[in-house]
């Protein structure tokens, strides 16, 4: 890179507002039209986890989910943002029910001819283990709500990092009509630490960041066509991309409905032969982006 190009890139970097460094509330605010943010069930409603204190864990006053109504280019919108710093963004009974309930109310509005544009800011390790089945149950409700809602409006998911999106919530991400990620994002069913713990370090060294991101990082997920947009960590660009995603309308076919395509792609993989990130890109090349 020439010195001039390096200086230009540095200036662009300094000119960006990081989305990753924001908390959930700031992120929701950054997505919505300026001044339109209105929080539902905020911290002073004190809808906390009843289960964590019983296990000696301090609960947060909003259970780690920020729900906000507002507008996107003047159209009514709903943003559900998960706070990754609190309990790893895990989905408990309350936090999950907040998202599911909000999506169900958005669905009701859509059915009554008042479309609400839903945005999910997914930063989560998945179910909160301390709340076990209750967390899993609400994740299922979130899935059902996304599937019902996307018949009316596109459901847009954003994974910006640094936690990523795992477990049952990775299925929620996969059900979204369109997914927007950064290079720092990760998307997968089991997180690398879980894989290392269950299958051994020979299977996956979770401390090898380059390896982990080459398998499940935002760039790889974009390259193999599992997400739709790959952006820099730039709040303005992410907010603009969400608007573009809604402007594109409903996809011709939801990714999760493309069963034959994905069965065919899975059939191309030989489980007996180790597959790495570039290998998968090569294998799925054609439909996938390079």
């Amino acid at each position: 890179m020439s010195a001039v190009a390096a200086v230009r890139e540095h200036r662009q970097f300094l000119g960006r507002t990081s989305f990753i460094e924001m908390g959930a509330r700031e992120r929701a605010r950054a997505i919505l039209d300026a001044g339109s943010f209105r929080e539902l069930l905020g911290p002073f409603d004190r809808l906390k986890s009843p289960w964590l204190p019983l296990q000696g864990i301090v609960a947060q006053s909003d259970d780690g989910v920020v729900l906000a109504r507002g507008t996107l280019d003047g159209r009514p919108a709903l943003v559900a943002a998960i706070e990754s710093i609190y309990q790893g963004g895990s989905m408990g009974e309350v936090s999950g029910a907040k998202i599911a309930g909000a999506l169900e109310l958005a669905l009701r509005d859509c059915e009554q001819g008042k479309p609400v544009l839903p945005v999910l800011l997914l930063e989560t390790g998945g179910v909160r283990l301390q709340e076990a089945n209750l967390g899993l149950a609400v994740i299922a409700e979130i899935h059902a709500a996304i599937v019902a809602l996307r018949r009316h409006v596109p459901v847009i998911g954003v994974i910006s990092g640094m936690v990523g999106c795992f477990g049952g919530m990775s299925l929620a991400a996969a059900l979204c009509s369109r997914l927007i990620v950064t290079r720092q994002a990760r998307l997968g069913m089991n997180g690398p630490e879980v894989i290392e713990q269950e299958a051994g370090i020979a299977e996956l060294d979770a401390s090898d960041r380059a390896l982990v991101w080459s398998l499940i990082g935002g760039e790889q997920r974009y390259a193999v066509g599992l997400v739709d947009e790959l952006l820099e960590d730039d709040a303005v660009a992410i907010a603009a991309s969400v608007r573009t995603a809604f402007a594109q309308g409903l996809p011709r076919q939801e990714r999760s409905a493309q069963v034959d395509l994905y069965l065919e792609r899975l059939a191309a993989i030989d489980p007996q032969r180790p597959l790495d990130g570039p290998g998968l890109r090569a294998l799925w090349h054609g439909a996938a982006r390079s």
Binding site: P43, F44, Q60, S61, E83, I85, Y86, Q87
Partner: peptide, 18 residues
């Protein structure tokens, strides 16, 4: 007025003041 700051994350805290 009431204000809310912070997050219940490692080494951090949230404050609800009203």
């Amino acid at each position: 007025r009431r204000v809310h700051v912070g997050v219940v994350g490692s080494g951090d805290l949230e404050v609800l003041l009203e």
